[in-house]
Write a protein that binds this DNA or RNA. Structure first.
Lengths: 160, 160
DNA sequence: CTTTGCCTTTGAGCGCACTCAAAGGCGTAG
DNA sequence: CTACGCCTTTGAGTGCGCTCAAAGGCAAAG
């Protein structure tokens, strides 16, 4: 049997491309996305770090347990999040919400730890991820079109 | 403590908006996304259906088991996928890859089954999903910017 | 008749990413 | 001193979405 790809029928490629145009090239204004506000306190408790990042304290401890994160302790043995830790959490969060698995993030951070000579591997890893994000954007645009269609016919009575 | 949202700092909203512009309004050419090719056989085996949709036979059986799908049988008791079934599979797939949970898809399909009077609820459901997709698109654009940044500095040597 | 291959069912197992429970320590308020 | 709330650890539990295993049926090929 011929391989028809039902999910992206070749016939419709043009319409799809028109609906999911090439993304803008990188915007210099966004290059500071990992910067933190200047008024961020130097040391934060786990509750504060959780509040600011939108993660739970549970999740922050979990990330530390699996080696994604290193966090200092205060005199009482409590976790104390400095700017460096917060930067890393934000970085990790951004990759997570974009669908990068924890294992891959972990791998990337290990490569960073290993030093300068792993730069090409890190580059490759990020480029692969970039490609996956682009694919995901296309998938979302298509799903959005389907959703719009369903909304347009007011609930999708026609076909299921 | 003031609620700073580190993941979408208000300060950068403008740059972010510029990078993730409003999506195009619905494209009429895409309204036929759920149509199937004319040359699609009337009845397909599970292996053929899997091949065409990119899902596994396991997954197709699973979807049927949880009530997402109804499929007829041939004389031998084998599943036989007709156009109606294939349309539904494509629809389900599109919602799945866009991140809609199976429970929500299931709910939507139940509403369809209940008839015309559930149209408003279906509309609301799809609009919520549309909003989530938009949010996800924004997240992806941001992650893409971070990824681009990391690529630009050739592997992200600077900050982790 | 036997082999081969695709199909059936039920129920169990898995990987991921959390998420929670239990048991206990620190430090301030009353 | 005690109570309270936030913190600690380890280990176990949860929910989702598959994914597989076992045991067996159908049917064309040799």
């Amino acid at each position: 049997m011929t391989t028809i790809e039902l999910l992206t029928p070749p016939v419709r490629r043009a319409a799809i491309a028109a609906h999911a145009p090439e993304l803008d090239p990188i915007d210099p204004d966004l290059l500071c996305l990992l910067d933190l506000p200047d008024d961020l306190p130097e040391q934060l408790s786990i509750a504060e770090a959780a509040e600011l990042t939108g993660l739970t304290a549970h999740t922050l401890r979990y990330y530390e347990r699996i080696g994604l994160l290193e966090v200092g302790r205060d005199a009482a043995g409590y976790r104390s999040y400095d700017r460096r830790a917060m930067t890393r959490i934000v970085f990790i969060s951004r990759l997570r919400v974009s669908g990068m698995p924890i294992g891959t993030i972990s791998h990337y951070l290990e490569l960073v730890l290993q030093g300068e000579e792993t730069a090409p591997q890190r580059l490759a890893l990020m480029q692969e991820h970039r490609a996956r994000i682009h694919q995901q954007l296309r998938d979302l645009q298509l799903a959005l079109a389907v959703t719009d269609y369903k909304i347009a016919v007011y609930g999708g009575t026609a076909a299921p």
